[in-house]
Structure formats: structure tokens, C-alpha cells
Design a protein around this nucleic acid. Structure first.
Length: 272
DNA sequence: AACGGGCCCAACCGCATGGTT
DNA sequence: TAACCATGCGGTTGGGCCCGT
């Protein structure tokens, strides 16, 4: 179907943003909030495409962005999440507070790939580079980083069958997930059932509230301690292991970085 | 000091998706 | 249901910077 261009290219600037443009964009978003990107440039007096404004804000101007180098913990988390999710940078970014998908994507392509190659690991498949066929029997396939049986990465990340809005992600057939070898090894299992092991208990009590909206009986960020110390990751704020020897040495960033361990693990972070 | 190659990262592009009319 | 719209996402690019020669 035909589609009009997102912006009138003849009248838009391209390339690097000037300080003045940045300030205009910041001021406008402070005053009016995010959204309506298409009309924002005109309203803010910017000769930019709405997409460009959105990107600039999300990747560079947002006040909650964490600048600076990635920590080793973030490194490892990115690797593990990539093993699960593949190139779903936005989902990975959702588990790394203050980091953007673009940043992580760039970081992956420039640093992590090399790091994995140096370890002898294929960055796409997370398999050993020189592994023979026998060694990889039973492992997940490269094109589907996690899922053995039809569940998409997005299903894993965004919708467990327990979430009220997961109706579009049918998981009736088989929710078993083949864990990547590194995680499976650490957990001592090869297959897990997400319904039982990661997500909050299925079929939470639904209640229709006064506004007519169905809600579950669970609070949005109810915590589940998976005791992921065994993954080399230490408990977040919801970890009942807090106070154990391993958690006393938590990196300051850990509670934020490991936010993905709580009950919202596989929920789309943007859906609050 | 000059040059060239590689690296890094901000930004762009095209497509997908979900919502609205 | 189809057409259109707005936004989000992932891949790619281009320019500036750094470093070695």
C-alpha cells in the first residue's frame, strides 16, 4: 500500500544535531512530554523528521541515560540475553537500565562480538567455534537462539502465557524452552517450563475493577527469587538471598542491571 | 607532521506492527 | 475490510577520532 513519506525531506535537516536543536527538542519534550513525534518537529520549531527527533531523544538526550563504559556485569548480561533473545536489541535494552538499543547494538558489534570470538564462541549462535557436530547435538539452532518449538523470542521476552495480554501469543502447544548450554549447565537442567519456573503462577486471580478493566491479583512487580547466583548473577532487590555472602559484594549497579530477574522478566518493559 | 587504516558511534533508512478511520 | 497513520525496530552507513607508520 502506498505510504506518504514520514516527513517532507526537502525541508528537513540531516546529519549531526546542533546544540540549539538539542535544546529545542529538550525544552519541547519537557513542556509537552514525549509522543506525537510526527508533529513534534513543527511544534518545536525544528527542521527535522519526527523519527529523527525520536531517535535523538531516545538515544542521546533522555535524562535517564547512563553514559560511559559498560561494566563487566552488563557485558555478561548482554551476552546471556543475546543468547536468549538474538538481535532483539530493544528487548535487551529493556533489561539494562539507562542503556539504549542503539548503544547495545553498537557495543555488541564493536566489543562483544570480538570478545566472544576471542573466547572461541560464535557470537551469533553462542556455540563453540570449533565444535564438531557431535558436540552440538541437542543444542538450539542458530536461527532460533532459544526456542525449540515455535515460541518466538518475543514471546519469551514479552509475553508469558500468564500475562493478561498474552492472548495473542498462543502457548498452548508447548512452552518448553531449550536453554542455551551455558545456562542449562549452570542450572543443571536442559529444559524448563516457563510457566512453572519463571513466570508468576499461571491463571492469576482475575478481577474486574470499577473501571471495567480486568486485572490480575498480582502486583505488577512481584518478585521471584530464582537464586540466580548459580548463573553468576546475584540477587536483585527481590532476591530473598540478599544477605547471603554472595550478595554482600554486589556491584552498585547490580540491583538495576538485574532487574530482569524479577517477576517482570519476560514482560515487555515498556508495558507498565 | 602527514597520511592511511581501523574503530566507534550517532544517525539514517526501510520495513514491520499496531492503531485508527 | 481496506487504507492510512504513527511509531518502533534492526540493519546499515558515514564521518570523526585515534593510533600506528
Amino acid at each position: 500500500m502506498g505510504r506518504s513519506p514520514c516527513c517532507e525531506k526537502a525541508h528537513t535537516n540531516k546529519g549531526a544535531w546542533t546544540k540549539e536543536e538539542d535544546q529545542r527538542l529538550i525544552a519541547h519534550i519537557k513542556a509537552h512530554g514525549e509522543g506525537c513525534w510526527r508533529s513534534l518537529p513543527k511544534a518545536a520549531g525544528l527542521l527535522r523528521c519526527g523519527k529523527s527527533c525520536r531517535l535523538r531523544w531516545i538515544n542521546y538526550l533522555r535524562p535517564d541515560l547512563k553514559r560511559g563504559n559498560f561494566t563487566d556485569e552488563e557485558d555478561e548480561l548482554i551476552i546471556k540475553l543475546h543468547e536468549f533473545l538474538g538481535n532483539k536489541w530493544s528487548l535487551i535494552a529493556g533489561r539494562l537500565p539507562g542503556r539504549t538499543d542503539n548503544e547495545i547494538k553498537n557495543y555488541w558489534n564493536t566489543h562483544v562480538k570480538r570478545k566472544l570470538l576471542a573466547r572461541g564462541v560464535d557470537p551469533q549462535t553462542h556455540r563453540p567455534l570449533n565444535a564438531g557436530t557431535a558436540a552440538v547435538q541437542g543444542m538450539h539452532t542458530p536461527s532460533s537462539p532459544v526456542v525449540a518449538s515455535g515460541a518466538s523470542p518475543h514471546q519469551l521476552a514479552g509475553g508469558s502465557s500468564c500475562s493478561p495480554d498474552a492472548s495473542g501469543h498462543s502457548s498452548d502447544a508447548d512452552d518448553s524452552v531449550s536453554l542455551p548450554p551455558s545456562l542449562a549447565g549452570n542450572l543443571g537442567v536442559g529444559m524448563i517450563d516457563l510457566n512453572l519456573s519463571i513466570s508468576p503462577p499461571c491463571q492469576p486471580p482475575l478481577s474486574r475493577e470499577a473501571d471495567g478493566v480486568l486485572r490480575t491479583g498480582y502486583s505488577e512487580r512481584e518478585k521471584i527469587c530464582l537464586c540466580l547466583n548459580r548463573l553468576g548473577l546475584h540477587g536483585g532487590e527481590g532476591c530473598s538471598c540478599v544477605g547471603s555472602s554472595s550478595s554482600s559484594s554486589l556491584h552498585p549497579a547490580s540491583s538495576g542491571v538485574l532487574r530482569f530477574l524479577d517477576a517482570s522478566l519476560f514482560r515487555d518493559p515498556k508495558v507498565q
